[in-house]
Design a protein around this nucleic acid. Structure first.
Length: 203
DNA sequence: CATCTGATGGTCT
DNA sequence: GACCATCAGATGA
């Protein structure tokens, strides 16, 4: 249970009220912040460079579109928690819950830029190029060893094993990507990335 | 570069 | 039984 003092003392984690806002606003402000992942053997740190906002009722692309179910219940709960699920039977995807309790919303983390603990990420997901390490929502969970055990964890808790940290006061230019791969009425997707970042998953 | 396809399992109808 | 908030590998240009 050793903790990395440098990370604990240097970085502040956004509190619950940061997440308890409109989903697209939270999505944009998550850009440039970091995800910190602790395992028994390492601490991994990576910058959020691409996100996507999902709302509740009225967003046909959202899991919460048709109301509360056992899987999506966490999206209706308290903000600032991780919503992790398995998709295509293959990949785990990481979201951050937003909005007031009772209102569904979540931000999908689509791409990260590795900052430290890269060796550990490469153990979890061997690739030739670092650019390929975490440049997709299914790739980054593999690299950070995130799975259903992380569903519901409090990402505002710096004592935890998975949380968000404010690593910089720098403002990032935001790129609102054109709609991609939306073919079945799911036209409310809001995808944002840090403009010009080479780790974004798709143009 | 673009486009296509199989893998794979939980969730919902 | 249909549907996926994806990825890697293959194929063709």
């Amino acid at each position: 249970m050793s903790r990395n003092n440098l990370i604990e003392k240097s970085y502040i984690s956004p509190p619950v009220d940061f997440y308890e806002r409109q989903t697209d606003v939270v999505a944009k402000e998550l850009l440039g912040k970091a995800i910190i992942r602790r395992t028994s053997s390492a601490v991994m740190l990576a910058r959020i460079v691409e996100v996507e906002a999902y709302f509740g009722e009225g967003d046909p692309a959202s899991h919460a579109c048709r109301g509360i179910t056992p899987r999506n219940a966490i999206m209706f709960g308290r903000a600032g928690k991780a919503y992790v699920y398995l998709n295509y039977g293959v990949h785990y995807l990481l979201n951050m819950v937003t909005e007031r309790e009772g209102y569904a919303g979540a931000v999908l983390i689509r791409a990260l830029e590795p900052l430290s603990g890269t060796e550990e990420m490469l153990k979890n997901r061997p690739v030739k190029s670092i650019v390929e390490l975490t440049n997709g929502p299914g790739k980054l969970t593999k690299a950070l060893n995130i799975d259903l055990r992380d569903n519901g964890v409090d990402v505002t808790d710096r004592e935890g094993d998975l949380f968000v940290a404010d690593i910089s006061r720098e403002k990032f230019a935001i790129d609102v990507s054109p709609r991609i791969g939306i073919s079945n009425g799911k036209d409310m997707l809001l995808r944002f990335s840090i403009k010009g970042n080479e780790f974004v998953s798709r143009k």
